[in-house]
């Protein structure tokens, strides 16, 4: 029996807020449930694709559907299913939030005002923090954490939430090795143990390429789609990341060497 696809784009074109064309002729289908990665260099339209899917940006042309719901007409239905973690630098640090406030946000955002946390919410939030080894900092001010720790808390926010699709924008950018391992491990475990899909935007496929089932390679349009190893083709990677990109094989896995930092913004 065919299930509703996780993502389905048809002839999608999206502009950046400054009017520049971010994506064009994007058509693809990803089955559900999946652990998928969207990869591509800086400015390739990865975040824009996800924002269009969540109805945060209107497509300039074409459509994108999440779980069969149209991103423009049925955005509220999509958002019931979504747990979203934006790029880390999108989180404003001027507000004195505690670690627990950030994680509870994942649950309270899906409630109605006055959004009071029940003891069950607190328990789930604590458990999510335990997954990324941050539970001891429950009462710690969020802005005082290191970049990697902040990212772990944000991933915990997604783990604590409800909804069948987790969307994470660059959760591994600028993190230390420990945080990276913890995040990858927690996401992998969560995907195995629960009936959820994970969409992860990343500039670096290497840390997660044994976990992901589908990879979408973007450079303003779809360059490649498929399993991680089929995407790790020298020709494809060079087309996207330039001639300096390399594929290295090590203990049966392919790794991709690029000079990409993973930080990009388009306001």
């Amino acid at each position: 029996m065919a299930t509703t696809p996780l993502l389905e784009a048809q002839n999608l074109a999206v502009r950046y807020p400054n009017g520049e064309l971010a994506l064009h002729n994007v058509s693809f289908t990803i089955k559900s449930p999946s652990f998928m990665a969207i990869i591509g260099p800086n400015g390739s339209g990865k975040s824009t694709l996800v924002k269009a899917a969540l109805g945060l940006i209107k497509p300039f042309r074409g459509t994108i559907k999440v779980l069969g719901y149209d991103s423009v007409k049925q955005a509220s239905k999509i958002r019931k299913q979504i747990r979203y973690v934006p790029q880390r630098d999108r989180i404003e640090l001027a507000v004195p939030m505690k670690v627990k406030d950030i994680v509870l946000m994942g649950r309270l955002l899906k409630k109605l005002p006055p959004r009071i946390a029940s003891s069950k919410d607190i328990e789930i939030a604590r458990d999510a923090l335990r997954q990324v080894n941050m539970d001891s900092l429950w009462n710690h001010p969020f802005p005082e954490l290191s970049g990697g720790q902040r990212q772990r808390v944000l991933v915990a926010r997604a783990l604590a939430g409800e909804g069948s699709v987790l969307v994470l924008d660059e959760p591994l950018a600028g993190t230390d090795v420990e945080s990276q391992d913890l995040i990858v491990e927690a996401l992998g475990r969560y995907h195995r143990e629960n009936d959820v899909s994970i969409i992860m935007i990343t500039h670096d496929l290497n840390p997660i390429h044994t976990l992901v089932q589908d990879v979408l390679l973007l450079k303003n349009t779809v360059i490649g789609i498929g399993e991680p190893c089929s995407i790790m083709e020298p020709e494809l990677i060079k087309k996207v990341y330039g001639p300096t990109a390399k594929i290295v094989e090590h203990s049966g896995h392919r790794y991709c060497l690029t000079r990409d930092s993973g930080f990009d913004r388009h306001d």
């Binding site: 979203y84 973690v85 999108r90 989180i91 507000v95």
Partner: peptide
């Protein structure tokens, strides 16, 4: 704190 995330969560 997180305008984008708040919208995306509905």
């Amino acid at each position: 704190v997180d305008m984008e995330g708040s919208v995306a969560h509905g």
